[in-house]
Computed example of a mutant assay.
Amino acid sequence: MKKKTVLKLLFIASCLVAVCSLFYNNETNTLDSLAFQNIEALAHDENDAGAYCAGYGSVDCRSYKVEYKVSGAQLHKSVAI
């Protein structure tokens, strides 16, 4: 009889601990404005609006595969493997 009572108490205690941990760990992490500015700065160069694209190859340029892409001061050239 004592063994069943102890097992019931352990089961109830573990359920309470599980419920409490769910409530306390339900926090949402929010990014501050500096993190969003950093993400925007990194994604800024992904726009190929001013890029010059030429040939057929493996470099992505405006959703096409090209051989050469010149954007700003950078030249991207596809490399044959």
Rank of each mutant, 00 (worst) to 15 (best):
Y64R: 15
S58R: 07
Y56H: 12
S71W: 04
D60Y: 05
G50S: 10
A41K: 12
A43F: 09
G72C: 07
L75Y: 08
A43W: 10
N47F: 09
Q37G: 12
A54S: 10
V59D: 04
D48K: 03
D48L: 03
K69E: 02
Y52R: 13
Q74G: 08
H76W: 13
D60R: 04
K77F: 09
G55Q: 01
V79S: 06
G57H: 03
C61Y: 01
C61Q: 01
Y52Q: 09
H44E: 15
Y68R: 05
E67C: 07
V66G: 00
C61N: 01
V66H: 01
A54W: 11
E67S: 07
E40P: 01
S78I: 01
S78V: 00
E46C: 06
Q37M: 13
A41Q: 06
Y64L: 12
Q37A: 14
K65R: 12
E40A: 09
Q74E: 15
V79A: 06
S58Q: 13
D48I: 01
V79F: 03
Y52L: 10
S71P: 02
A73P: 05
E46Q: 10
G72I: 05
A54D: 08
C53P: 02
G50H: 08
Q37H: 10
A43L: 14
V59W: 00
Y52K: 07
V66P: 03
K65L: 14
A43C: 11
Y68A: 01
A51H: 02
N38K: 13
A49L: 08
F36K: 06
E67Y: 14
V66S: 00
A43S: 13
E46V: 05
I39M: 09
A41P: 00
A73R: 14
L42D: 11
H44S: 15
N38Q: 12
S58T: 13
A51D: 02
S71A: 14
S63L: 14
E40Q: 13
F36H: 07
D45N: 15
Y64M: 15
S71E: 15
K69G: 03
H44P: 03
F36P: 02
L42N: 11
E46K: 05
G55M: 03
A41V: 06
S58E: 10
Y52H: 11
A73E: 15
K65P: 02
C53Q: 01
Q37K: 14
K77G: 05
G72Q: 10
Y56Q: 09
I39A: 06
K77Y: 13
E67M: 11
S78N: 04
A43Y: 11
N47K: 12
A49N: 08
A51M: 04
E46N: 11
D45I: 08
D60Q: 05
A41G: 04
H76Q: 15
